[in-house]
Structures are given as C-alpha cells and as structure tokens.
Design a protein around this nucleic acid. Structure first.
Lengths: 243, 243
DNA sequence: ACCTGAACACCGTTCAAGT
DNA sequence: ACCTGAACACCGTTCAAGT
C-alpha cells in the first residue's frame, strides 16, 4: 500500500516528491510539452470552469488522445493543481507593482487585497479550485512569503501577521467564491431578489423588507470592500492593543 | 422560449412559481412521497457530498427508478435546492435557544455565528451547496429575518444591520467551505504543511518559516473565531463612530 | 518506444414500451 | 394512469493493440 500523502496532488509531500515532467516529440505536429498541456487546460478552465473541463476536450484541442495526456499527468486532479499554479504566476506578475504610497498599513493591505480580489474576479472559474487547495507550489509559497513579510515590515509580531494573513486570504477567497462561482447571483438576479424581498408578507418579514435595498443593492466589490474594512479595523485594534 | 428565471431552481421567481409536489402510491412498497425523496437525498448528500450523489444511487435506495424520481423533481439541481432547505430547517430547530445572556451585542452575535459554524461543521458535505445558493426558500428567509431583527434590536440602523449580516454570513460560509470542503486540509495535513514550511530554504522564505507554527497550528474553530472577532470589532467601531 | 481506439464503469436525463 | 428498462450523450481512466 502506497503512502497516500505522496499520491494526493497538491499536498506538500506530493510537491516534494513529484518528478519534473518532460516533452514528447510528435511527427508533423507541435511537440506536446507539459507546458502546452497545462496552458491548454488553464485556457479551458478559464473559459468553462473545472467541472465542465474534461480530458477529452483537452485532448481534442491539443490534437491528441486522452491516453497520451495520461502519460504526462496523473489525472484531472493533478492537472488542476498545475492550473492553479499557472494562474498564481500570472497574478504575481500582474501585481508586482503598487505599495509604498501610504504610511497606514491598512491602506497598503487594502489595496493589495483589492488587487487579489480583482484578479480572482477576472478569472471566476479559477476560484472554486482555490477553495479546495491551499496552494503550496512555488508560486503559492512566494505569494504567502511576500504578504507576511509585508505585515512584519509594518511592525506586526509574527503571530499576528500569520493570523491576520490567514483571515484576510480566507475572507477574500470565501467572498469571491460566493460572489463569482458558477451559478452565483448576477446583478439581474440581485435586482430580482430585492423585488422578491419587498413583496414578502409585511408581518412575517418586516426587517428583511426594510433591509431589502441594503441586502441586494450593493455592488459586488463594494460589499467585499466593506467587510475588508471591518477586518482591517479589527486587526488594527488587536495590533495597537496594550500587551 | 421560456423565461429562464422561472426555470432555474432556487431563484426567487422559481420559489414563487413552483408547483407544490404530491405523493405517489405504489403497490406493496412505502408510498414515494416528495418528502421521502428529499429526506433520502439529504441523507446521501450528508454522507458522500453533492458531487458523488447520483440520481441512480437515490433511486436504488428508495427502491425505484431514476425516471420515477424525475416525475417528482425536475432534476438534480432542483433536488439540491430542496436539500439545502431541508438542512436549514434542522439548523433552525437546533438553534432556537441561546441569546439574551449578555448585554454586549458582540457576545450574542459571536455565539450565534459560532452556532452556525458548528452546524456547518457537523454537515461538511452541505457547505458547497450553500456557496452556490443564496437560500431564499421559507427556512432561508426566516433565518435571515431573525438575524437582522436581532441586530436591529441591538440598536443598529437598518443599513448597517444588513451589511453586517451579509459580511458575517459570507465570512462564515466562506471560512467553512475552505476548512471543511471535500479535500480540505485535515489536522494531519496541517501538521505536514507545518513541517514542509519549516524545511523551506531559509533565505527564500524567512517569514513563512518564522510563521509556520501560527499558519498551521491553529485549531479550525479557533481560526474561525479569530477572524470573527476582527469583524465584530470592526463592525462595532462603525456602529459607535460619530455620524 | 511511443501512441491511441476502444473499452470499462460510471454520469444526468429522456422516452418508448410495458402494466 | 403510472412506472421503468434501455437508450443517448456524456464522464475519468485504462489497456490491448497498433506503428
């Protein structure tokens, strides 16, 4: 019986023990490299989501067969781990900028988290994958390191930096998946939901009716920024508390 | 072309226009009621999750055929909406208690959200369904109404009550799905992840190594409670702020 | 040595045919 | 009128057979 920790894609042990994949030459067709497979899979996931993604679809797009794909990757699960890693690299490149413009750590971290949120919003079909994976591949590690270093640079003790970072990432991914996941509410849905709330029985749902506007009218990013403000405010209080 | 809003299960329009389902008598077997179908589906989802749930499995367990199930429900999606509604009723019954023991609204709301979080933790396979649905069936509406009324009862303006409620529910469901979703990190995984962090290159990942303990050692519920504390603290500041 | 058609054991959903 | 076996068009994954 094989130790399962070494076979579950995306786990630390799996990253540590995986064999770097190679390239296969094919007569008359572009070589089928590992990179081309991951890039093709990332494209399809971005377009239609990881549920609708299928090995057959990818094989067709790369002009090969599913069995050949299985010679490069262990299966769909493993491929999705590489897809996450692929997107994290792009997100890092996109956000190498910013920072430094303010002295209040809350402004800097708010902008960083808003950038992360916007990057997720730009690739909604990626979000469900981040919910089921804690990214510990090279790009995932680098993002985590930079973020914690940023907080420590603002004078946070290591413990509060780690916990604040965890809370912020959890909040952002959790908010994004509820807002942008397949089948999430569109703006039209929110309008319809507001109308629905307002038409409810006034005796049974007085508060829901009174709050209908606030419950549904907020633009997605504003709703995210509000909660983010609450969290940053709470962390700041913990940071400046005596003791 | 039919208006899609009336055919997508779980939407307000769908709830408003759906036809209440009936019961079918079968010779020599227990009658196949809508309730038995939802109860059976809820059991299976609780056991193995909504992905692994299949109409064939449910049909086998209820001693019938898939085609017969389709005479009672429109399909798997619709059935999952009823499964959510089913669990929300149970959660309401379980939490009819508490409240009133403290004068600080934060203590009361913290206990309420912890109760919700524990209810979700007790049914991890239900959580992914809550991510893709805003529950607006009878039980979902009643929960929302009670929660907002509680905040208003503590003197919150309607707008802040609605936004605070939204943030709290999003945070709780978002945290729960990342902590408890199928394939989420177990305690053993977290330990392995901590070891992995500590073994990284000291020059490349100094902060990750320093924070390894804090990043992975926190018990799940403590991590949730910490973030919850930040949010409650932030909302309280908004509530007591002048203007 | 490398590749792949076809198969296996599944899905959600539908419908012709039975009782 | 009610029920269902079998089908349709898919999955992820594997392997015997080809080049």
């Amino acid at each position: 019986m094989v130790d399962e920790r070494f076979t579950v894609p995306g786990t630390p042990a799996w990253w540590a023990n995986r064999r770097p994949p190679g390239t296969v030459r094919r007569r008359g067709r572009p070589p089928l490299s590992f990179e081309r497979i991951v890039a093709g899979a990332s494209e399809i996931v971005d377009e239609i989501g990881s549920d609708a993604f299928s090995m057959r679809l990818l094989a067709r797009r790369l002009d090969t067969s599913t069995a050949t794909l299985y010679r490069h990757v262990a299966g769909k699960d493993e491929l999705m781990v590489y897809v996450v890693e692929h997107f994290l690299r792009d997100m890092r490149l996109e956000h190498e900028v910013a920072a430094g413009s303010s002295e209040d750590w809350r402004d800097v971290v708010r902008d960083a988290m808003l950038g992360f949120y916007r990057a997720l919003s730009a690739h909604p079909n990626l979000i469900p994958l981040l919910v089921t994976q804690v990214p510990v591949g090279p790009n995932g590690l680098a993002s985590r390191e930079r973020a914690i270093a940023m907080l420590v640079g603002f004078g946070f003790p290591a413990t509060l930096a780690a916990r604040g970072y965890s809370t912020l990432v959890r909040y952002t991914v959790g908010f994004a998946v509820q807002q942008h996941a397949p089948r999430a509410l569109t703006r039209e849905d929110a309008t319809a939901l507001g109308d629905y709330f307002r038409q409810l029985d006034r005796d049974a749902y007085p508060q829901t009716i009174a709050a209908a506007e606030s419950l549904t009218a907020v633009a997605p990013e504003d709703g995210f920024a509000e909660g983010l403000h609450f969290i940053l405010s709470g962390i700041d209080k913990a940071r400046t508390a005596p003791g």
